[in-house]
């Protein structure tokens, strides 16, 4: 009885979580104009999207922005993680970590407005004509992706045997060579997951983009928002469906790479534990002697 109840409960949770998405996907295939009545199956709204220059342009814009933001945030964030990892003072390290985590906790709207104010202020100081552009948008995206990259890479660095870079230097590497030949290959799996994560975050961001993009560079999320303001047609649903599946695929890839990696780590950790226990037992026997 209890089991049945818990299953029903779980089913309800999933229903509430996914019902809106299911409705969205269903209506995106509707042949009629209505967003409430399903009349038949058709791909016409998808076709319409791919014929709409504005949408396609927004999609291209978003891709360019997200790829650039993800790559740059990953490079900067990885270097930052290495720097934080090498800090000797524990207090300084935790202070820096707190500071980098704040943008993650911050509501998007606060981050967006504060970045916009900063850009306006900076443009005024530098006497620039245009304040908000692709570049401010890119800077904003890199900014909010950074803490996620650092948070992804840092644990992997902690897992690394600290003798590893020492061994490389012992064998003739300069510290820089040691980073590229030994440390970077070791943390590479988490660098990739960090990049996927950053891309996903950048791809589906609306709030911060809305404040920092200006009128010249329209991203997909901003485009969808402006479509809603005009009229609600199923083409919004089909576009959202595409975005949803794109993000879903990325999340699956992210989880897959991450969990395969974690599984390996866990297996190694277990083996180490077993060996340690065996050694301790052996030492115990020695004491008994």
């Amino acid at each position: 009885m209890k089991k049945v109840f818990s299953k029903v409960y779980l089913g309800l949770i999933f229903l509430f979580l996914y019902a809106p998405l299911i409705v969205m996907v269903l209506i995106s295939f509707n042949s009629g104009d209505s967003t409430t009545q399903i009349e038949g199956f058709s791909l016409k709204w998808y076709r319409e999207i791919f014929r709409d220059h504005g949408t396609l342009q927004a999609f291209r814009n978003t891709l360019v922005l997200s790829v650039l933001a993800a790559v740059l945030a990953t490079v900067i964030g990885t270097l930052a993680a290495v720097g934080i990892h090498k800090m000797r003072s524990k207090r300084l390290r935790s202070a820096v970590m707190t500071v980098t985590n704040i943008p993650m906790m911050n509501p998007d709207i606060v981050t967006g407005i504060s970045l916009m104010l900063l850009f306006v202020f900076a443009a005024r100081m530098l006497n620039l004509e245009t304040t908000l552009s692709f570049y401010t948008l890119l800077i904003a995206h890199i900014t909010f992706c950074l803490p996620y990259v650092i948070l992804n890479v840092l644990p992997k660095l902690r897992q690394m045997d600290k003798n590893l870079p020492e061994a490389a230097q012992d064998l003739g590497c300069t510290p820089l060579q040691s980073f590229f030949k030994v440390e970077l290959p070791f943390i590479m799996p988490s660098v990739w997951t960090a990049m996927i994560m950053a891309f996903t975050l950048s791809f589906d961001d609306f709030v911060i983009s809305n404040f920092t993009s200006g009128s010249s560079y329209e991203t997909l999320t901003i485009h969808i928002y402006s479509m809603i303001k005009k009229s609600v047609k199923p083409n919004i649903y089909s576009l959202s469906t595409i975005v949803f599946f794109a993000v879903l695929v990325l999340l699956i890839v992210y989880n897959f790479t991450d969990s395969a990696d974690d599984r390996r780590e866990r297996a190694i950790e277990r083996a180490n534990l077993r060996r340690e226990r065996r050694l301790r037992k052996e030492r115990g026997e020695l004491v008994e002697e």
Binding site: D161, N163, L164, E166, A167, A168, Q169, D170, L171, G172, C173, T174, V182, P185, F186, M188
Partner: peptide
């Protein structure tokens, strides 16, 4: 002198082999 300019080499307790 830094380690990479010394004519000595080290064997570490936990091997420190390059896992990749």
């Amino acid at each position: 002198l830094p380690p990479y300019q010394r004519h000595v080499n080290t064997v570490f307790q936990k091997y420190a082999l390059f896992p990749h």
